[in-house]
């Protein structure tokens, strides 16, 4: 268990996104306010084109919002649509990412891909290697960490990607359809990993998914429709 558990790590307020202008103008994300706490897994459901990825990339600090504010661990990161700190540093230290595929750098093996997340933040090679090995081991990748990404199966790749997203103990992990390329049993395993890692590392995990059968593994479900995010309710897992 982690001492961060239960604290609000992410607070977004009035966050919105407008793409284009004039006739092509599209409000992909209507002003949105919500929180996420350490240790919880939040599922985001919704039809294609409803704005799920837009929300995740804004929170992931790779897509600037049109309006709104964003706080991580109580610190302002974006205030009224303006970045107030160096986003690269926040991405490196506070965020972890997992996508549907192409998560891994093809010229680094599994262990190196995981180490990378530590080493770009100045963690020495020895320590980063030991930590990467321990984490991959705990994810059942102990025997495969020297394999190059192209030699890994889809499920193995996602486990390495999750390890990389978690290794530096970020406050928030963003996962955009991480199970879409996997069969249902592997998809379920990946969701279990998110749940366990979120609890172990004290991270809030926001995961976009279409697979309703894995919702029993998450703590909360949010639903997106036409850019509007709505709470669909806490699940049986919610610890409160």
């Amino acid at each position: 268990m982690n001492e961060r558990l239960g604290k609000i790590v992410l607070h977004v307020e009035g966050l919105s996104k407008v793409y284009g202008e004039g006739p092509t103008r599209l409000e992909a994300l209507k002003p949105t306010t919500f929180d996420a706490v350490a240790g919880e897994v939040v599922a985001i459901l919704g039809p294609s084109g409803s704005g799920k990825s837009t929300l995740l990339t804004i929170i992931g600090l790779i897509n600037p919002p049109t309006t709104g504010s964003l706080m991580i661990n109580g610190d302002d990161v974006i205030k009224n649509g303006q970045e107030v700190v160096n986003l690269t540093t926040v991405r490196r230290q506070q965020l972890g990412y997992v996508f549907q595929r192409s998560n891994l750098i093809p010229f680094l093996n599994g262990e190196e891909n995981v180490r990378l997340a530590l080493e770009i933040d100045g963690v020495p090679a020895r320590e980063s290697r030991d930590r990467a090995r321990a984490l991959l081991d705990s994810l059942g990748m102990g025997g495969r960490m020297k394999a190059m990404p192209s030699k890994l199966s889809g499920g193995e790749q996602q486990r390495v990607a999750i390890a990389r997203a978690m290794i530096h103990q970020p406050s928030i992990v963003l996962a955009d359809e991480p199970t879409a390329a996997l069969d249902s049993s592997r998809g379920r395993q990946v969701m279990e990993l998110f749940r366990d890692s979120a609890h172990a590392n004290g991270a809030a995990v926001l995961v976009v998914t279409h697979d309703h059968r894995t919702l029993d593994l998450v703590d909360r479900v949010l639903e997106m429709e036409d850019g509007v995010l709505a709470e669909k309710g806490h699940t049986a897992n919610t610890r409160q």
Partner: peptide, 16 residues
């Protein structure tokens, strides 16, 4: 380019 985009996403400094 994909690896470079990924490095940027992970928050790698320009120096890297």
């Amino acid at each position: 380019m994909l690896s470079l985009s990924l490095l940027k996403l992970l928050g790698a400094k320009r120096r890297v």
